[in-house]
Design a protein around this nucleic acid. Structure first.
Length: 268
DNA sequence: GCCATATGGAAAG
DNA sequence: TTTCCCTATGGCA
């Protein structure tokens, strides 16, 4: 259940474990048996990520496109073991084994199909992409910024946690229209996402609390939640804001949980 | 055992 | 805007 930073880590891990290796691919669950037959025996060259999409490239020019969705999960092992649960895709080499459960998407695609997918995904802060092509769209939009941030055609890799946290860090109300932001605010948000998400790639967790608020945040995340990081508002509704002490609020936007501080994020 | 929940996204209406 | 799909887990009987 990752946001973009985790997918980038997984791409690196898969490349490290299996890059330039001829692997065996199978589907213990059975739903990817046909796809597996198209690539097993071909050398895995590398894995790459754009936003939350993962691509595992093979020497025969085919690739496996994986999107984890809400439930998907990779497990990396040093050797193949008896399958536990429903394993859609399994990659095995002499020295490693990767198991994939519950993905939203797991399919073999051609180079052309990969381009089609990449073309509909927006710039990715983690890759250092240029946000200029989405700046005017956001600044002209009557849609809430809290919705725009979750739109993968605009902000590739941003999920519910980064959305909530970056808006808090800039004092922006999630319901403010994109058009109500200044150009400077757009740029601040983007720059901050680049830093936060790159840090997430390095650490494997989402930490958004600034050093000066760190003492109040210490160990809260570990006690309160299991997403594995220290945050200001995500899943902290009903608790005190780490900055001003107000109660964090919870709402819903596009069917997803939304968290914000009504005091710190009262303005645009 | 049963139920609610989850860091998503696409299809259906 | 609602429904559906994918799977595992934790809380509660």
């Amino acid at each position: 259940m990752p946001e973009g930073h985790v997918v980038h880590r997984q791409a690196k891990e898969i490349t490290k474990l299996f890059g330039k290796t001829t692997v065996a691919v199978d589907s213990p669950q059975g739903r990817f048996t046909e796809g597996a037959s198209l690539i097993t025996g071909s050398a895995l060259t590398k894995a790459t990520a754009q936003g939350k999409h993962l691509f595992i490239h093979f020497e025969n020019q085919l690739a496996v496109h994986v999107h984890l969705g809400l439930y998907g999960k990779w497990t990396f092992l040093s050797e193949r073991v008896d399958p536990v649960g429903l394993i859609r895709l399994r990659i095995t080499s002499d020295s490693a084994c990767a198991e994939l459960r519950g993905p939203n998407a797991c399919e073999v695609i051609t180079q052309g199909e990969m381009r089609t997918i990449l073309n509909r995904i927006g710039p990715d802060p983690i890759k250092g992409d240029d946000p200029s092509r989405i700046r005017e769209k956001v600044l002209a939009s009557t849609t809430p910024i809290g919705t725009l941030l979750m739109d993968q055609k605009l902000y590739a890799g941003v999920g519910n946690i980064y959305r909530a946290e970056v808006l808090f860090r800039h004092g922006i109300n999630p319901y403010s229209q994109g058009a109500s932001l200044t150009r400077a605010q757009f740029d601040e948000i983007w720059t901050d996402l680049v830093q936060l998400m790159k840090r997430g790639v390095r650490s494997g967790r989402i930490d958004t609390v600034r050093p000066e608020h760190e003492p109040r945040a210490m160990n809260r995340a570990a006690r309160e939640d299991r997403h594995g990081g220290e945050v200001y508002v995500y899943r902290r509704s009903g608790q005190e804001c780490l900055v001003c002490g107000s109660m964090i609020e919870q709402g819903e936007l596009q069917g997803r949980n939304l968290f914000w501080c009504p005091s710190c994020q009262s303005g645009v």
